[in-house]
Amino acid sequence: MKSKKPIYITIGILILILGGFIYYRYYFVFGEGVKAGELNYVVKKGYMFKTYEGKLIQSGIRSRQTGNIQSNEFEFSVSDEAIAQKMMLNSGKMFELHYKEYVNALPWRGYSPYVVDSIISIK
């Protein structure tokens, strides 16, 4: 009988590759940053996983077409319920938000790959 060792090694390598792919696709923090603007809304929504989703209107009137005005919108998810509640109570104010950018979104983390994890300031 032949040894089953090569089969176990191959399966082990495939599991490691699959685990690395899933980590990169859904858990790897691709970037971090700060966005500032007027908080438009924060809502709790979802069918199975209730997550907090929001939109920040950034200042600026730059447009690609001459003569048009365009607002820059930043759509995000909120990871912490306490942060989301604080944002809901101060809707319409100017916020500076720290966020993490993931490659893809997860249903229980929110609809957006941008996840706000802290509030830097409220004005």
Rank of each mutant, 00 (worst) to 15 (best):
F28W: 13
R109F: 06
Q85Y: 09
F74W: 04
G46T: 08
H98Y: 12
K86S: 14
G19S: 14
K45H: 03
T66D: 15
N104G: 05
R109P: 01
P113Y: 08
I83C: 08
G60M: 00
F74N: 02
N40W: 04
F30E: 15
A36L: 09
S112L: 09
Q58H: 01
L14V: 13
N72D: 01
G67S: 06
I9N: 03
M94N: 10
H98G: 12
Y47E: 15
R62W: 04
Y114Q: 14
L106K: 13
E101Y: 07
A36P: 00
Y47C: 09
L14A: 14
L39K: 00
P113W: 05
I69F: 08
S79F: 06
G31D: 15
I22D: 08
K35Q: 11
I22F: 13
N40F: 09
L106P: 02
R109H: 10
Y41H: 11
F21C: 03
I17P: 08
G67W: 12
V116M: 08
Y114F: 12
S71P: 00
Y111V: 10
E96H: 01
Y52Q: 10
K86T: 14
G20A: 12
I57E: 04
E53T: 12
M88G: 08
L106Y: 03
D117L: 01
I69K: 14
V115G: 00
A105R: 07
E53P: 01
K50M: 13
A36S: 10
M48N: 13
N40S: 09
E96R: 15
S79N: 10
K45W: 04
I69C: 07
S77V: 02
V116F: 00
I17D: 09
V34Y: 13
L89G: 06
Y99S: 04
M88F: 04
G67Q: 11
G110K: 02
M94A: 03
I61F: 12
K45N: 15
M48T: 11
E101A: 12
I17M: 10
G19C: 12
